[in-house]
């Protein structure tokens, strides 16, 4: 399991306006492309100096591909990254604060301690 890689996906998509829209419209295709082309790029290094070992666990890949932010919370993806990106994708479809409150309701079955987010 790689919480780091989950976070890296959320982080790199969130900071790119085109990728935010691409992930909103085609989550499975974006995840497949990203894992093949982007997962191993070290962010501050030249492309030929990429890593060689990063890949999603099946449950992680499926959570991202299905926009399942409840599962991402359970898997320990950083909650700030998940929230920020999902607000960017879906707040527009709701009343003001409606998405954020629905997000909280869908996580209501979690109690302390929450899933570990350490990477």
């Amino acid at each position: 399991m790689s919480r780091y890689l989950l976070n890296k996906f959320l982080y790199t998509v969130d900071r790119d306006p085109a990728l935010v829209e691409r992930y909103r419209e085609d989550p499975r295709g974006t995840v497949t492309w990203w894992e093949a082309e982007r997962a191993n790029q070290i962010l501050n290094c030249h492309v030929p100096e990429a890593s060689t070992w990063l890949r999603f666990a099946d449950v992680e890949r499926e959570a991202l591909a299905s926009h399942d932010y409840v599962k991402l919370f359970e898997l320990g993806a950083h909650p700030f990254l998940t929230l920020t990106l999902f607000i960017a994708m879906f707040e527009r479809d709701h009343e003001p604060l409606g998405f954020q409150q629905e997000y909280a309701r869908r996580l209501a079955h979690f109690s302390l301690p929450y899933p570990d987010i350490a990477t």
Partner: peptide
């Protein structure tokens, strides 16, 4: 709380 069940109360 950010990205958890107690957010935006």
């Amino acid at each position: 709380e950010l990205g958890g069940p107690r957010q935006f109360g």
